[in-house]
Structures are given as C-alpha cells and as structure tokens.
Design a protein around this nucleic acid. Structure first.
Length: 489
RNA sequence: CGGGGUGUAGCGCAGUUGGUAGCGCGCUUGCUUUGGGAGCAAGAGGUCCCGGGUUCAAAUCCCGGCACCCCGACCA
C-alpha cells in the first residue's frame, strides 16, 4: 500500500526499538518531556520532569554519602589552564576536550582559564593548602554541579557537552584506606542502580587502557542496554599518590615524617537517566522504576457529562487525598481538553509506573482500575476495591519495582556469553557481551577493538575462584582473570 | 578533522519548466465529545539559513559563507 508518507517525527508514536534504537531513544527523551535541545552545540536543557527524576537520584545519593561521613562543598567552574599541566596523563586525557576562556571583561586574560571538565586539579590545589597533619585526614568532600567537555558526538543525557553530576574527592593517610573508600563508593553505586533504578550492574576493575586519566585504578559499574551495548554507569578511581605529588598534598604522620596523601575520586552523572531509558523503556515510551519515578501513580478520572463528572471527581478527589497521605507521589490528571485515551498514552510515554482509572462504573462498583506500566495492555489491568487502596497501590508499586529488576537481570544474563574460541567470540560481541579469559596485554584488547569494535568493560571483583587458569580468548596465552567485552556507549 | 546529507510556519515535510508559498501535526476560540491517541467550524502563525550575482521576475539558477544532522578516529 502506498501510504502517504507520514514522517515518523510528526506522529505521536515512537519508532520501535527494533526499527531504530537510536532514533527511538532520541525521540523518547523529548516526547517524555525529560529534556530538550539547547541552542548551544551539544548542550541540553533538562526539563522539570527530567530534573525531578534527577533530584530523586541525587537526594538518595546525597543521603548515602552523608551517612558514610562525606560533606558537600563547591569549587570554582573556572580552573587555571596551568593546573592541567601538572599531572601528565591527566592533561593528555583531557586536552582534546577542554573549553578555554581567553577573555574577561573585554580584555585578554594573562592566564587562560579552563571550564572544568572535572575538578581533580583545583581540588588537589586546595587540599595541599588544607592538609598539614595526619589529624586533617581523611578529607571526604563531594561537589554537586556540572562540568563541560567538548564532545564531538553528543546525545541527550548519554553524552552532552555540559553534564550534571557529583564528583567526590577524598584524601587519605594510607593506601588501604583510600582503596577501601574507592570500593565503598562503588558499593553505593551498585546499590542505587540495583535497588533504586532496578538496573543490574556489574562491579569491576577497568583495564589499564580504559582507566581514567591519571588514575592508578579505575573501578566501574557497567550496565547492559536493550541494544546489548554496555554503559559505564558510574566510576570510582584510586589515584595512589599521583595527584598528591602533582599538587603537593603532604602531611606529617604520627612519626613526624612527611607523607604524600592517597586520593580518590568518583562520579555518577546525569547519564544515569540515559541508562534508565535504555534499560527499561519500551515502544510505548519511558518506563520508570517506582522508587525513582517523580510521579508514581496518576489518577485519570473518566466521565461523559457534568453529572458524571461530579460523581467521579468526588470519589477521585477522596482517593487522591488518601493516597497522598500515604506518601505516594501522585498526580491528578483532570485536564478536560484531551480524551482519556490520550491521557493513557501520554502517561505511558512519560513512564509513570501505575495508572488509576476512575469512571462511572467504578463509582458504582466502589472499585478502581489499576493499569501497571510494566505490563502493557489488558494484561496489566486489574480492578480493585476502593477500600484499602493505599495498601494495594503501595504493594503494586513494590511489585512493579521488583519485576522490572527481574526482567532487566534476565535480559542481561541471557545476553552474556562464554564463547569457546575467538571465532565464536567475534560473533558473540556483535550482539551481546562476552565474559572471557584475558591475558592482560593491551595488544589483545586493541585487536578485539579493531576486529569487533568491542572494548573491555571491567573485571568483576568476584572472579572465578581456584587455580584453574584459563587461556586468553584472543592470543591463547595463559590468563588468570576473566573480563567482560562489549560494544559500549 | 576525513566521507555523505540537510537548511521552507513551533515540529515533520511538499513546492513541477523561475511567476510572488502550501500540506499534516501542534497552537487559539467556540460547540459537541471523553473506559485506549475525538469531531466540526472559524482563526493565528513565514527574513523560504546568510551574503552576493543572473533575470522583468528567484524558495527554485550561479558563486561564496554559516549552521545542523548522519557515518568514521576520541569520551562520564
């Protein structure tokens, strides 16, 4: 049939994930009202709904950091360019993506300033002023803010020039303590992904070539998106004394001997929202886990005329008050300029976990219709009595949360493979992950990247035990560790 | 930075041989509607990316810029 050529962009529907995953994502971000394109290259505007989601993430993390002894502070957006030259690998890593301020107040600056791409340097500089004695340690500071990296190819939330994050920067008296901190934070990251975002992640250590610029060890949590690509979802770095030496952060220990600090840094960015979209979203739109959703349930009243409206709204308002009092994040959709069918689709696009429909029939039967977002169509609808509704709703939200995690975990596990040889390996990483033995040599990683575009993701902390050494999937030499390989964002 | 493409209403697009700009969605107002993306009617909305040239006449042809998108090398 020669249908008229209606562009997919002019319709309310999304392209399906199978048709074009990337375009599905791009349109979903905008249509779910999370963000919009800014008039500045590579930058986004986070809209109120998207920011509300981000606030749920940040407030959970903030509380968790405070529980573990961290405090918040703020450092300048502008950093002297010369600071970046103090740590060799750090400069090399960031030089290509720096934005530099050359003029201020109409005159050329004596010293050029960098818009921070990350704050290790300026924070290191300040720490060197603040740390004198072992009594000053540890320093456990978190900065909430945004940073700027001149990215060549951008995508809303996943990779924008400016992005939002927290960056933790800690300084310790001993290596053991700094490493412990690195892993403590990684555990927090794992927890927010699994328990709050319903996204299964793998904790592990990055290979040398995938390390943060200037780090001695980079750890990460890695998640699988629905297109099987990997997303580095959070990172925690151990610097050893690299930055302490570059910025002269020294203290006198208990034996009155001068020592360099051991430092760490760690971050989760607004990219996490990209992960939520790509792990849970479906062809109807966004699907948010109840624990992070800005709106956990939406009430859609249904009526034909004023008489029905009066009856329905009376019940709907009462239920609204009840559920609100029970602490459920709730929205009443009483718009009268769109049909209820439109509202159903609209809230599904926005990923609201649960919809509560109240119509004349429900008023009569003293029931409501519940429609869960994670089970589309008739299968996800149920009719429950109005009495004890708060308990029923809370229960269903919890069930949605756990079923989302279960589904995402099963999906991920079904797409991680253990190929027998390199030929099979190449096939596997084209459309999934491989968990394989690796000899540890960068040459083998480079060959994999060359052949398949896949990179090493991380080496999980809980490695296969015992002395059953394997053989590197690439070169066949002896290998003592297994590592994930995948195409990554 | 290399290769390809696109700039026309808020968004998505059409615009023939050069003749003075249109469609769908959205928006505004009114009435009827509302249990899976409602209907009718009347409206509002334009620097056709910018600059120059050819011509009686340019969205359309020519020259020069700019911007954005996609594909490759780098990245939370």
């Amino acid at each position: 049939m020669a249908e008229e050529n209606v562009s997919i962009n002019s319709t309310r529907r999304l392209p399906t994930r199978a048709e074009d995953f990337s375009e599905w994502y791009n349109q979903l971000v905008v249509k779910a009202d999370l963000a919009d394109y800014a008039p500045v290259r590579g930058c986004m505007v986070v809209k109120p709904y998207g920011w509300a989601l981000w606030e749920n993430i940040t407030s959970w993390l903030d509380a968790e950091f405070k529980k573990t002894g961290h405090v918040n502070a703020a450092f300048p957006t502008l950093i002297p360019l010369s600071f970046f030259e103090k740590e060799k690998e750090h400069v090399e890593g960031f030089a290509p993506e720096l934005a530099v301020v050359t003029h201020g107040g109409g005159v050329e600056l004596e010293e050029k300033l960098v818009v921070r791409p990350t704050s290790e340097t300026i924070i290191g500089y300040m720490y060197s002023k603040w740390v004198k004695s072992w009594r000053d340690l540890p320093i456990l500071i978190v900065q909430w803010g945004s940073v700027l990296r001149w990215e060549l190819r951008t995508k809303l939330f996943l990779r924008t020039a400016e992005f939002y994050w927290h960056e933790g920067h800690t300084a310790h008296a001993s290596k053991e303590e700094a490493i412990e901190e690195t892993y403590r934070i990684l555990d927090i990251y794992e927890k927010i992904y699994i328990e709050e975002a319903a996204i299964p992640v793998i904790k592990g250590v990055k290979s040398e070539s995938e390390r943060f610029a200037g780090a001695q060890m980079t750890t990460s949590v890695e998640a699988m998106m629905q297109d099987m690509r990997a997303l580095q979802a959070g990172t925690s770095h151990y610097f050893g004394t690299n930055f302490a030496k570059a910025f002269d952060i020294q203290f006198l220990d208990k034996n009155n001997s001068l020592q360099y600090c051991e430092t760490t840094s760690w971050a989760i960015s607004s990219r996490m929202i990209g992960a939520l979209i790509m792990v849970h979203g479906d062809d109807q739109g966004l699907m948010l886990p109840p624990r992070l959703a800005p709106i956990q349930a939406v009430i859609v009243p249904i009526f034909k005329n004023d008489e029905e409206k009066t009856k329905v709204m009376e019940v709907a308002d009462k239920i609204f008050m009840e559920l609100k009092a029970a602490g459920i994040r709730l929205k009443m959709d009483d718009r009268d300029n769109v049909s209820s069918g439109f509202k159903f689709n609209d809230w599904e696009m926005r990923g609201v976990p649960l919809r509560i429909e109240i119509g004349p029939k429900d008023v009569e039967k003293r029931s409501v219709a519940l429609a869960r977002r994670d089970v589309p169509g008739r299968g996800g609808k149920s009719f429950v009595p109005q009495t004890n509704l708060a308990a029923a709703v809370s229960g269903m939200l919890a069930e949605i949360q756990s079923s989302m995690l279960k589904r995402a975990t099963e999906f991920r596990d079904a797409n991680i493979h253990d190929p027998k040889d390199y030929e099979e390996f190449k096939k596997v990483v084209a459309d999934g992950w491989a968990f394989s033995w690796w000899c540890g040599r960068p040459e083998c990683e480079a060959k994999v990247k060359e052949d398949t575009k896949a990179t090493t993701r991380n080496m999980p902390l809980d490695q296969p035990k015992g002395d059953t050494l394997g053989k590197c999937i690439v070169c066949g030499e002896k290998a003592d560790r297994k590592i994930y390989f995948a195409r990554a964002y």
